[in-house]
Amino acid sequence: MEKGGAPVGLTARPDHQLVTVSPQSQEGWVATRLDFLVNWGRANSLWPMPFGTACCAIEFMATAASKYDLARFGMERMSFSPRQADVLICAGRVPFKLAPVIRRIWQQMLQPKWCISMGACASTGGMFDNYAVVQGIDTIIPVDVYVPGCPPRPEGLIYGIMMLQEKVKRERMSDERLRDEMEPDPTSKLYIPPHAIDELSEPFGNSVHQTRSGL
């Protein structure tokens, strides 16, 4: 290498020290909690099931593309089958006609499973406070993380994903009810009582002036 030149190529750094070990000394111990290890593995290899119905799905695709690169979080493997997915990412508005579909997709997913509700429409119905749109998918399936925005930017979704990773990392195996499947009410097929759904989907903002009274 020329004197004073930039260090390029395969030249060893001056402070480089070769570590020599004997094979016998490789036997070591790592002591940790099992659920720490399991959660660490789970949190960094979440496989999303994209359920994209609107413009949020475009932002989701941007998140998965090279610039934001969802693969950094271990989520590069989109699972288009619910049976091999860990996270249901509902991106976009869900009309009532899709309600039984998303319910079935959620039920087909194996435990452990989580759900991200991406965007205003999936979380609350958004601007679509009308006869056709579900007012928040949390009335159909349990949701872990809500990502606000219309649509959320990729940074927003990534923040939501990191929140979910935090949540996964804090799960404890001692919690026996952690993996309990929520069973809907057998007659009404609802998870939460009807009056709670009505309360959750109360109109707000300008739309309170539009009543159900007809004309």
């Binding site: 006869y131 009335t139 159909i140 759904i197 959750l200 989907s201």
Partner: peptide
């Protein structure tokens, strides 16, 4: 009501 709509849709 919303709950009735959801019940029928499901």
């Amino acid at each position: 009501s919303r709950s009735e709509q959801l019940r029928q849709a499901l």
